[in-house]
Write a protein that binds this DNA or RNA. Structure first.
Ligand SMILES: [Mn+2]
Ligand SMILES: [Mn+2]
Ligand SMILES: [Mn+2]
Ligand SMILES: [Mn+2]
Lengths: 221, 221
DNA sequence: CAAATTATTTAAGTATACTTAACTTTACTC
DNA sequence: GAGTAAAGTTAAGTATACTTAAATAATTTG
């Protein structure tokens, strides 16, 4: 049976392993899931025993197709819920992640397919993350352009944000720094990695902490 | 912390105790929750230790205000979800109970209040059950008229159905026996408790098993 | 390459939520 | 009111999912 814990472990393994390419370490998983490294060892043995992952002691964890399937199904539920809560219930994009984090574990495939249909089979969630379809297929985004790589005097638009940090999301909402919004990089400060940008004619200073959670696309005039 | 199990125990204790009037027996709870009587004893001690219920060994269980509050909050979430899934997502009334049974445990107060607002603070769920408001207040329906008490040649309408049985709900949908639908009692068969009724000019035989899960109001011509 | 450091696992223990089997209490019946 | 049946609890054991502390493996470094 797929418990809430198992689903969260598999989602984390899948995400940290960037699909299935990289081996995932106990330490990184423990950090991601806020549990002890001992807990990881135990759960890893159990998940391996059930064919969800490949686990070589002291070497690392690799997701197997059975685990990948479950992880993607949970991610699909998460992102469809986020979009549904924004589009159909009027929540803002900084309010939906925590709700989806819970809802993703108590939604049947029947219900999520109804939601998918209701939203007309969307491709992207409110944070720019791709939504897997019923078969688990979706655009992969493991290497799109980070805001860190922006250069001065060029225009960009946000294509994706990392939605896990509550305060970060609230700040973005506050300064109206939304998805697909255009901005110009005014100045890049090398010593602290921060960036001065202009949105809607207003200038903002964004710390490195903020920009490393934002992904962009250059707008060629 | 309020786990899913605890919430289900408290909901069952509240329902079987009809609010708080009746003492709830271990046997009835075990039957309702599909667990052993031993499991009830154990959980009862734990819930009593945490002030949710009053538990006297060998005597029975009585819900306390703290437990009542949690139970009503879960019931509120359940019924609002049911109505939301019917009204906003177009599911049918026989598809929503099982979904709500899961969603009720992973919905924050913030989200359920948004859903409540979106539905314009409804008073009744798709099965005729009253929806508690934010403060936990709602019309109590512990003793409305059962379909068993119907008499021949009178007209009635359905005010509430017991939504727990899947097959039962599916059958009602099939014969278009919906909420607020009018029907006439043609014949009452004493020996097996069944009833012959007419809906939309079509006659149906309903077994005792069915009619004891339906509650009605007489329509005085 | 041996020593130190870091990463990871194992061991032992806890809490929740179940089970079956044995035992105790209460209720019913003659 | 004793005997029995039913209702309920206790005891012992299991699975999941955690913890901290101790042990071990792998990696880094002088
Ligand atoms: Mn999210
Ligand atoms: Mn998202
Ligand atoms: Mn229901
Ligand atoms: Mn209902």
């Amino acid at each position: 049976m797929a418990t809430i814990s198992k689903e969260n472990y598999l989602k984390a393994i899948y995400t940290l392993g960037e699909g299935n390419s990289k081996l995932v370490s106990s330490t990184s998983l423990a950090k991601e899931l806020n549990v002890s490294k001992a807990a990881i060892s135990e759960m890893a043995s159990r998940l391996a025993g059930q064919g969800f992952i490949d686990y070589k002691k002291y070497k690392g964890i690799k997701i197997l197709s059975k685990g990948k399937k479950l992880a993607i199904s949970v991610i699909r539920k998460h992102r469809l819920w986020e979009l549904f809560l924004v589009d159909s219930l009027g929540l803002s994009w900084d309010e939906v992640h925590n709700e989806a984090e819970k809802l993703e574990h108590c939604t049947t495939d029947f219900l999520i397919d109804k939601i998918d249909e209701h939203l007309k089979f969307p491709k992207t969630d409110p944070h720019g993350d791709p939504i897997p379809n019923k078969n688990g297929d979706f655009r992969t985004v493991w290497n799109d352009m980070s805001m860190k790589e922006c250069v001065e005097n060029k225009s960009y638009s946000i294509v994706r944000v990392n939605d896990r940090s509550d305060d970060f999301m609230k700040y973005l909402s506050k300064i109206k720094f939304l998805l697909n919004k255009e901005f110009i990089v005014i100045e890049k400060l090398a010593f602290d990695g921060s960036l001065k940008i202009e949105i809607d004619k207003i200038k903002h200073m964004l710390s490195e902490k903020i920009i490393e959670n934002i992904f962009v696309r250059e707008i060629k005039n």
